[in-house]
Simulated assay, not measured.
Amino acid sequence: MRTALCTALTGVLTAAAILTCGSAGATPAGPGVTARILARTTVDGTDYTLREITIPPGQGTGWHYHDGPLYGVVKQGTLSHFDADCGSDGVYRTGATIKEPSGPDHVHIGRNLGDTPLVLEVLYVLPHGAPFAEDAPNPGCAFG
C-alpha cells in the first residue's frame, strides 16, 4: 500500500507541477455524489489521502474550500470548475490535471455539466485531522 501511495503521490504531483461538508447556508454535494478512499497515510503532521470521487451528470460538489492543497486527475468525463466570482476557472477533460489551492479565500464548486459520470482521483494534502472540505455558502451565483 505504501508503494502504491508513493507512486500515486509522485504521478499526481509531477503532473500538477508540469501543468502548473455542514454550516448554515452551506451548499451540500448533489445527490449521488460518492467518494471512496484509495490510500491514506500521515507524515509529520500532514495527512495524504487519495480518493476516487464520482459525480453524476447534472450534479456538483457544493461550494467549499480546503485546508490544504489538492491535486487531481480527471479519469472520466469533464469537470467544470467555478470560483467565488461565479466565473469558470477551468474545464478539465479526461486525462487533465487540476490543482486547488487552500484556504477560505479559494471557495469553489466542481460541476458535472456533461451526460456521463465524472470520475476524479484526488490527492488531499491536509493538516492532520482536517476534514476533506469545509462547506461554504453559495457566494451569490445563479447556480450551485
Rank of each mutant, 00 (worst) to 15 (best):
A142F: 04
G144I: 08
H81K: 05
A35I: 08
T78E: 01
L50E: 01
R2Q: 08
P131F: 00
P104G: 07
D83V: 11
L19N: 15
D47E: 08
A29I: 10
G90C: 00
T94S: 06
G129P: 05
P131E: 02
S102D: 07
R40P: 03
G77A: 02
T54H: 00
E100C: 04
A26L: 10
G90R: 00
L118V: 04
E121Q: 05
A15S: 11
I98C: 12
A84N: 13
H81T: 11
S80P: 04
M1Y: 06
P137H: 12
A136N: 14
P56L: 03
D85L: 06
D115M: 04
L70A: 07
K75F: 00
A8K: 07
L13C: 08
G140L: 13
L120I: 02
I18Y: 11
A130R: 01
P31V: 14
N112W: 00
F82S: 11
P127F: 02
V74R: 03
G32W: 13
L118E: 02
L13Y: 10
P139G: 12
A133V: 08
A35K: 08
G68E: 07
C6I: 15
A17G: 15
Y71G: 11
A24Q: 11
G114C: 09
G11K: 11
V107R: 12
E52L: 00
R93A: 05
R51I: 05
G60R: 12
A29Q: 14
T10E: 13
G25C: 09
T42W: 08
A136Y: 10
V107Y: 07
A39P: 10
A26S: 15
G32V: 07
V122I: 05
L123E: 09
G72S: 05
G30D: 10
L19Y: 08
W63A: 14
G60S: 10
P69Y: 01
N138Y: 13
T78P: 01
G110E: 08
G60P: 10
C21M: 06
G22Y: 09
L120K: 03
P131V: 06
G129R: 02
Q59F: 09
A16D: 06
H108W: 08
G22M: 10
T94N: 05
H64E: 07
I55E: 01
P57E: 01
